[in-house]
Design a protein around this nucleic acid. Structure first.
Lengths: 152, 152
DNA sequence: TATAATAAAGTCAAAGAAAGTCAAAACTTT
DNA sequence: AAAGTTTTGACTTTCTTTGACTTTATTATA
């Protein structure tokens, strides 16, 4: 049997292609039913194939009428942003985060106010929680924000 | 089926828009009849979508000829922010964070792009780290960002 | 004028409808 | 065989819908 996760991945990518740039909305159980797999496998596919690093944003709601929204951000490999994401990696200090933020602002891809927002979000003060993982958390937040700037 | 509660929410907001600032008066049973839902669902919508901290006041009368009055009120900016910070507290879900972000955007205190940034920063996928403290971390980030807006 | 009937709205808990998590089991690759 | 990846399922969390029961106000009646 061809790998299920791959099939699901292709399926979702086709949906995204068909919708030319618009986000795609699915219901986890429905999709799982279609592929006759465990619903949680959809989550697996989403986290392994549609991660932020790969240029996707995921949003979801639980409860009656809940659903999962998949947003593809168009970024090319040699893109400035792609490089930044790589540089941020899985962990980043506040100093470096600020440098990157300034860099992006310098290119006028974000406004001064937006830069301020980003700096606030990535500040040590904002990031409550275990000191030893602050840099990891910061990396995730910074990447998420930069990607969101790219969103249609 | 599109989510009933959302439809009802939109319906009421349209009424409010149409009445430009004036309170809107509805009959619970009538509205429930219109939407073919349980009357108590109107209460659900009212408490989840038109709560005080979202800037609404609800008044009602029971008995014959009874009705529900929905008032949208305008708070001073300091009160508004103070309220938000209080509501965020030490822990907040993604859903509630988004609602607050929308609220702030609705008041035109932030732009659509800035709202997107905030939503990205507070998304579960941005916040790497232990699941059990995500809401705590999110609260810190959101407060940090809102404060940065407030402080100019 | 009391009292009963009726007409609202309120409350709360249970059931239902999603999605999320995590770890074990089952595969594949090295 | 070890390491890595995928698949599954039991359990959890979050949000929505429903309905039985309560409270309050108005209207009709004795």
């Amino acid at each position: 049997m061809a790998k299920m996760s791959d099939l699901i991945e292709v399926f979702i990518k086709e949906l995204l292609d068909d919708s030319v740039g618009d986000p795609v909305e699915i219901q986890r159980n429905e999709l799982a039913g279609y592929f006759k797999c465990a619903p949680s496998q959809i989550n697996y596919v989403l986290t392994t194939r549609f991660s932020m690093d790969k240029g996707y944003l995921i949003e979801s709601h639980r409860g009656g009428g809940g659903s999962i929204k998949i947003i593809k951000l168009q970024l090319s490999q040699e893109d400035f942003f792609a490089n930044l994401l790589k540089e941020i990696g899985d962990s980043i200090t506040k100093l470096k985060a600020d440098q990157i933020t300034d860099l992006v602002q310098g290119k006028e891809l974000i406004s001064e106010r937006e830069a301020k927002l980003i700096k606030a979000a990535t500040s040590d003060r904002s990031i409550a929680g275990p000191v030893n993982i602050k840099n990891e958390i910061r990396a995730g937040i910074l990447k998420g924000m930069l990607l969101s700037v790219y969103e249609g």
